[in-house]
Design a protein around this nucleic acid. Structure first.
Lengths: 249, 249
DNA sequence: ACCAGATACCTGTCAGACAGGTTCCATCCA
DNA sequence: TGGATGGAACCTGTCTGACAGGTATCTGGT
């Protein structure tokens, strides 16, 4: 990684004058400059950035332009701004991807079924990896969330939150933040569609079967059996997709 | 989908006064309001939004605040703004995820190996799906990109671009835009790290073997053989990871 | 050495202004 | 009548200056 970081830092171009001919918006250029500043100085999360006024003076633009650039970077969660204190470099954040996916679903650019196909692909893998890599605390957290689904069975809203937390906990236990990022991004969409699948199941018996499916996944991860975890997760998604099909989605 | 969209629209809260007590930044509130406006009116990509001044008047804030909110939404590629013309709702865009992932890699929050593990998981699936769903044009495009890698073999930069385009073409041929989104997001990181793996291979023979691996994937997709495509893609990633390991990454 | 107040700095928001781009309509010419 | 042309209205991009309120830092006293 250090090797890669160094290469990236070297690749950062030296600062030059801004293009004032209006071919590219000043705000976008300043965004690139600020991002380049982070690269050039190899800033890590938590590192503080120069103030808006400092960048404005350095680039010869008004503070409003720098502000909009900061705002954009903040929206992408690349930096973290707050009243009174200087902007800081920010760590990874799954919410951005969640917003993007939610927008795509809302605009009919992605269907729920396509999301489920991706989830099945990704989460059968996270389940297997979690079974291999989970520690005691993670295994208990996952099992605890499955148990909570059964406990709060009558309160759909709570079951949903446990469900989402369950899948995210597995993605964390697999020790690959990139999987965590992707799985967490599904949460936003799930909150909008989960109820459809839940109510589409014919009766409480079918709903309880879904809970049992989660428990089986948790048990497999607890038993450190990756094949069993993968199979259980695949079956869980097969049931979920079938429920959505019955609902006519 | 229409069902889901309707539910989402109903869930959108009615507009109320902005919180002026500074508990939440006005810009963030305006962002939410604009997003809610899109939901409430069920706007699809291409639909035009009210002007900055209109929103400023509606919410009782200055235009600067609305501008920053628009900028943020534009950075997330949820809307598309341009000089002179009104802002429009934007379609799906993979570049956002690419920027986020690139930042996470640069900040040592995700390693290249973790990215490759995700890629292997996702792209063995896209290869299999592409073999099942590709049409003639897509099969030829994929095969053509593999051929282009062999043709431009001596120009590493071009081989890399063909490589990236190859994987993206497969992700498009699998007919699931969510897979396309994820695969496209890897492109930004690949551009920063591809050369490491390429130069780490011991000789041109090993490099040519990598090209042959792409050709085998293309052939499998052309032959509409999902198992073979999946196997070929898996082997391709195994070789790539081995090359990175030899490079000491 | 430690705590409290003062101070300098920084961000959040506002108002107004102007240049340049886009859209649309009305007018004019063929 | 239909198409081209011109202009007006509107919109965004950028700048300037200002002020309130939050944060961090320094200073001074104990």
């Amino acid at each position: 990684m250090a090797e890669v970081s160094r290469r990236l830092a070297e690749a950062a171009p030296a600062p030059a004058g801004l293009d004032r001919r209006g071919e590219t918006r000043l705000v976008d250029q300043v965004m690139d400059r600020v991002a380049a500043h982070i690269r050039r100085h190899n800033l890590l999360p938590g590192a503080i950035l120069p103030s808006e006024a400092a960048f404005a003076a350095e680039f010869g633009v008004s503070r409003a332009v720098v502000r909009e650039a900061f705002r954009s970077l903040s929206a992408l969660k690349l930096i973290d701004v707050g009243a009174g204190r200087r902007a800081r470099v920010s760590g990874m954040d799954a919410s951005v991807l969640g917003v993007v996916v939610e927008h795509a679903v809302r605009c009919d650019q992605i269907t729920i079924h396509q999301i489920y196909d991706v989830r099945r692909t990704v989460e059968t893998r996270t389940a297997a990896l979690a079974a291999l890599r989970r520690n005691e605390a993670e295994a208990e957290e996952i099992a605890g969330l499955a148990a909570a689904m059964r406990r709060d069975f009558c309160e759909a809203e709570r079951v949903m939150e446990h469900d989402i937390a369950f899948h995210e906990a597995i993605s964390r236990a697999c020790r690959n933040p990139m999987f965590g990022l992707i799985v967490a991004s599904f949460g936003a969409v799930t909150r909008q569609t989960w109820r459809v699948g839940w109510t589409a199941r014919p009766d409480d018996g079918a709903r309880m079967q879904s809970v049992a499916g989660h428990e089986e996944i948790a048990a497999a991860i607890f038993a450190q059996d990756p094949r069993r975890a993968e199979r259980a997760m695949a079956e869980h998604f097969d049931h979920s997709v079938r429920a959505l099909l019955m609902a006519g989605v």
